[in-house]
């Protein structure tokens, strides 16, 4: 099975390092970015399935990054990570297209579950797209056969 490509975006360097180690041990392929800008830069170069995005970061704010990602890469699943126990930022994130949210401090277990769920959701979506595209292709080829015929 294909490794889930995960990206962690947080301004806490040590969090990135440790979580990367943990997730890699659990069999994920992990990219890290310590700011929104870096994350967007890296996304241009590598393919990522799921992003875990901290809501509150210096510089580019988590919600702005989310908006940007969703515009450029609508298929990328984003899980918001919030320091606030308040649901408000999470709700805002969900409205903007985030798949789910997690509250700090979060368990590795929870993180893995949510990342897997997000990946599954993405897989399902990709599958649907593939089916649709193949139907379209089929129809196209049938039409061209008819024309030829």
């Amino acid at each position: 099975m294909e490794k889930i490509k995960l990206m962690l975006v947080d301004d806490e360097e040590r969090f990135l390092v440790t979580t990367r180690k943990l997730m890699e041990k659990k069999g994920f392929s992990v990219e890290t970015a310590n700011s929104g800008i870096t994350a967007l830069e890296k996304l241009k170069q590598v393919e990522v399935h799921v992003i875990v995005l901290d809501v509150k970061m210096p510089g580019m704010d988590g919600l702005t990054v989310l908006k940007e990602i969703k515009t450029l890469y609508p298929l990328v699943e984003v899980i918001m990570l919030t320091g606030h126990a308040t649901i408000e930022s999470a709700i805002d994130g969900l409205k903007l297209g985030a798949t789910d949210y997690l509250m700090k401090p979060t368990d590795l277990e929870d993180l893995m579950i949510k990342v897997n769920d997000a990946y599954t959701k993405r897989q399902t979506l990709e599958e649907k797209i593939r089916v649709a595209q193949s139907k379209k292709y089929l129809k196209f080829s049938q039409d061209s056969i008819k024309e030829e015929g």
Partner: peptide, 18 residues
């Protein structure tokens, strides 16, 4: 205060898991 505590707490938690 709580918000600021949550970040280091997250790191500690990750470290503990590791």
């Amino acid at each position: 205060f709580a918000h600021e505590i949550n970040n280091p707490l997250q790191i500690i938690k990750s470290e503990q898991t590791l």
